[in-house]
Design a protein around this nucleic acid. Structure first.
Lengths: 244, 244
DNA sequence: GACCACAGTATGGTCTGACCATATTTTTTC
DNA sequence: GAAAAAATATGGTCAGACCATACTGTGGTC
């Protein structure tokens, strides 16, 4: 009686998700296309409407469908693509569970900012969004307002890198850290230093120098967040492993 | 009649999620703790069990709860922390929707691999997992088997960096790219070159040199994936922006 | 006392059918 | 023809039932 595989009991709503995913891959469903109404889907797939609805909640959570009630062309479930919102929810919950620490999120942000700035500098994208964000930052009167445009500036860099996945991750990290960004601005008291950093970042990206762009971002973040983990240096020979 | 805010109709399951999130933040609920049974939660929150279940599907999708049927200490909904699985689902679906391109995922992977290797080299973590993966790679007879241990090696580097968020993203990216990794190994035909790369990566990480580790990873990935986007170089003055 | 079979029970998983809120479409009325 | 009313299709919610699962308790057997 050995060698038997455990029966993998798949739940009904999982089958619904799998079917929808098959349609996406096979029938070439894409963003903007509508899915059948919940009642029709339930009948066609021979499951209850509850199971279809649970599948919809999952797909909605992952940022691939959006549901609208009512009647007409805009009603029903439509395929969308909002990975950033899903990532934001994910980060927020796991930060709350303390399964991710703030340090880890901040370090990830530094990595992505440097990468984005370096790639934006060679990608040749339109930088007018960055210039506009800089102007608005100059005119900001509160820390919240400053951070809002600061976020637009940094997310703009990620988008200018041409990588939508990186940009989505960047946006999620910023959303998760917004509170701490406001605290950082209030702690510094003066935004002159920050603005000098930002203008330097903009300048070197526009000049097309990836190494300088990466360095400028690192300088900026270390100024804004002194508690950030230290820069990497070669480990001393024979140094003991980290840990308590 | 202007200046009115649209009434933000919150759905019942969203309120349930918010309540659970409040308990996580306020009561210090953490990984391993159990949530009340669906029927009890429905009664306490004055909503139907369906709404509670839809909330559970969302939290399950985000990798923060796991549900077990039956009775006893292991039954019911338990708080967990599996961000990597949620990320994997997210990437797979958005890749299928063509809202993310393979290039973007591969580029993100290169970024994370370099960061991980550099930080692993200075973090002083236990590298025995990497050594074991190397041995198993040597003995692999099929491309699938090789890729399996190759994945363990690269994910091991990300874990050795000490950043769980980065490690989770790394794992998700690898899962999404597994198919292409197998193709890459089959295309190369011989794994001798790949093994030399891997041994070099292990060596420089163990030696504690972040710059060399980053370079070794980049060399390796460019060898395995010749189609990867080119290395960054300063943009020529007056170069035209990238086209469509 | 140790063991085992069996009923009891609490859990998630599923289904059915109903009703509500919303928004468009169709029909009726003036 | 325009306005008003009814019909209709959609997602959102609820109540109640039943099933499958897995532990818990109880009793009998040895």
């Amino acid at each position: 009686m050995s060698g038997w595989e455990p029966v993998r009991r798949t739940r009904a709503f999982e089958d619904v998700i799998a079917q929808i995913e098959l349609r996406i891959a096979g029938d070439g469903l894409t963003v903007g296309d509508r899915l059948p109404a919940e009642r029709h889907l339930a009948e066609q797939l021979q499951v209850s409407r509850s199971s279809v609805r649970e599948a919809m909640r999952v797909l909605e959570t992952l940022g691939v469908v959006s549901s609208q009630a009512g009647r007409g062309p805009d009603a029903g479930a439509v395929l969308i693509s909002k990975p950033a919102e899903a990532l934001t929810d994910l980060l927020r919950l796991h930060l709350g569970l303390s399964s991710l620490s703030l340090d880890e999120v901040v370090d990830a942000r530094l990595m992505i900012e440097q990468w984005s700035a370096a790639h934006a500098s060679v990608h040749g994208a339109d930088l007018s969004v960055l210039a506009a964000a800089l102007e608005r930052m100059e005119r900001a009167t509160t820390a919240e307002e400053f951070v809002e445009h600061d976020t637009a500036f940094h997310v703009g860099i990620a988008e200018a890198s041409g990588n939508r996945l990186i940009a989505a991750i960047m946006l999620s990290l910023r959303d998760s850290l917004r509170r701490y960004a406001v605290e950082a601005v209030e702690r510094l008291g003066d935004t002159a230093g920050l603005m000098a950093d930002h203008h330097r970042i903009y300048r070197v990206i526009a000049a097309g120098d990836p190494a300088e762009a990466s360095a400028a971002v690192e300088t900026h973040l270390r100024y804004a967040y002194p508690d950030i983990s230290p820069a990497l240096r070669p480990r001393e020979h024979g140094a003991e492993p980290a840990g308590p």
